[in-house]
Amino acid sequence: MKTTYLFPNRLKMLSGVLFVISFVVLTALFVFDAYDQFKIKTTVFALFDDAVIGDPVYFGFTKNNISDELLMAIVLCSGIVFAFAKEKPEDEMVATIRLHSLAWATIANYGILLFCYIFIYGLTFLTVLMVAMFSQLLIFIVLFRYKMYRFYNSQQYEE
């Protein structure tokens, strides 16, 4: 059984390190509200920008601090590659574990989202939407890594 949609194993280590670092930086910048200290203000192309001040822009150019966009791009790309990189011994049982983790991550993620949707109001809800950008990926990675850890350390009873 060959899986064709997985990334090569050699990218796993690199993307894992990149994901952890960028995720920690993203969280830290968000918690300490420090995006403004790392401003990379530039002109960007926008499909749509309903500018808080000024006229809205459709299919045009607008000014924006892109430090958070860059960081989110790194988190998502490295996260996807890390989550879907081949394991060293990639076989059908690993594929099954991956599928289970993905299913449970999806269920847990939408459970949490529904809970937050019902019980969180006001501006804090924007934080929920922000976290929802990568929460499923994060839950999947944690769950899959834990299950693979259990798998690699499963008891060996030889004769």
């Binding site: 059984m1 011994p89 076989d91 059908e92 049982m93 060996q156 009873y157 030889e158």
Partner: peptide
């Protein structure tokens, strides 16, 4: 050994272990 068998059919040692313990049902190919 589990390792020998794993190498012969191209799966990991842990998969053979799970098979023997009845924790995993293999595919038709396997």
């Amino acid at each position: 050994t589990q390792q020998d068998l794993a190498e012969k059919i191209g799966v990991s040692r842990q998969t053979i272990n799970a098979l023997e313990a009845g924790k995993y049902v293999p595919s038709t190919v396997l």
